[in-house]
Simulated assay, not measured.
Amino acid sequence: MRGRTRAAAAAIALAAATGLAQTGAPAQAAVPGLQIVSTASTGGSGSPKSVTATCPAGKRVVGAGFYLDGAAAQVVLDDLIPAAGAVTATGYEDQDGTAENWWIRAYAVCADPVPGLEIVTAVSAPGSAARSTTAACPTGKRALGGGATITGGLGQVVIDAMMPASTTVTAAAFEDGDGTSATWTLTAYAICAPALPGLVLPTVTSPPTTGFQQGASPACPAGTAALGTGWDVNTRFPGSIFPVAAAPSATGVLTVALMNNAPGLAEWTLTGRAVCATP
């Protein structure tokens, strides 16, 4: 890829929680049995790598996340797919490939069945150009989390945004710096349910930088816990910044992105979002 940044990634501190402790005794539990399950792929150099985090028997997915490590800004997230009882994450090396060892981790935020829970999808038109698509929850339901997937991009399309809002999840994708003639589509996933007690969407945007790495870590308010994750990269050169983490923990969400190339060293920011509710 033209103008690839060769700097080494700074260390990313990641609290990889595998479960959530109950705090206090809320009057009404929104998501009883809340638990984070994470599973990592094998390491190595090779593409693609895919991994699935599976909820314990009887539990259902209420949120999804991912973490890419080991190949600084040379691997793109291709899939973050929530299903009824599991979350699948897939990474592709860009067209230059890499000899570095890397791996991908999937996070499934699981809970006892929530009444009315469903997953809604929206698929963009096919083509070879930037696009976005929005999955909307049915009337009366709210978005708890979401996901996105690229079909046909094969490492040359970046999921620039996957942002839950009150009743929708919007995904946006851009081709990387030198583009591709391949035909590809973008799918957005919204995990929907009736409004839950304590449901809020804390959001943090990093300060502008021309640097290699940005992080944004929205925290859930006291007495709530993270369900869903979200991110949005803001840059004059879409496709030049690779999101590498949107990882839920007991208290919030960590989002991280790395510069792949940024012509003119343009400033960029990263917005992270958590969907939180009463556990």
Score class of each variant (00 low, 15 high):
V204W: 09
D96K: 11
Q22I: 07
A9G: 14
G91W: 11
V37D: 03
T209I: 01
A195V: 13
V275G: 03
C220E: 00
P221R: 05
A135I: 06
S206E: 04
Q35S: 05
A15T: 13
F242K: 01
A53V: 06
T18A: 13
S41W: 08
T151A: 10
V244K: 12
A135S: 12
R105G: 04
A125S: 15
G70L: 07
R2D: 14
V200Y: 08
R4A: 14
K59E: 11
G211M: 15
G146I: 14
T134H: 10
A84H: 05
W268V: 00
T185A: 02
P263H: 05
G24P: 00
A25C: 07
S206Y: 00
P26S: 03
T278N: 10
I12F: 11
L186Y: 01
V120I: 15
A193Q: 07
A9E: 11
S128W: 03
D69I: 06
T149G: 15
G179C: 00
R4E: 14
A73I: 09
L265G: 02
L80C: 11
L80M: 15
A190E: 04
V157H: 05
E175S: 04
D232P: 01
A84W: 03
T39N: 03
G33S: 07
F212P: 05
T23I: 03
A73P: 06
Q213E: 08
L14T: 08
V61Y: 04
T88P: 07
K141E: 15
D79H: 15
S45I: 00
A148F: 11
N234K: 14
I81Y: 03
G33R: 10
T235F: 01
I119S: 00
A53P: 08
A193C: 09
T168C: 14
P279F: 10
I191L: 10
I150T: 15
A161H: 08
V158Q: 05
P126R: 14
M259Y: 03
G215P: 00
V31L: 03
G24D: 08
M163G: 04
A13I: 13
A9R: 06
A129F: 08
V51W: 03
L34Q: 07
A13P: 06
V51Y: 09
A195H: 05
G140C: 14
T187R: 05
P208L: 09
P113C: 02
R273A: 01
A27S: 12
I150V: 15
A173S: 09
G198I: 10
S38F: 12
T210Q: 06
A245H: 09
A216Q: 07
A165S: 02
R142Q: 11
A122L: 06
A86N: 15
A161N: 01
R4L: 09
C55F: 06
V75D: 07
L270T: 03
R2T: 15
E175H: 01
G46R: 09
A71Y: 02
L77I: 10
S217I: 11
G215I: 09
Q28T: 11
D112Q: 13
F237W: 05
M163H: 02
F66E: 06
P138N: 09
E175Q: 13
A16K: 12
T121K: 10
I241T: 02
W231I: 04
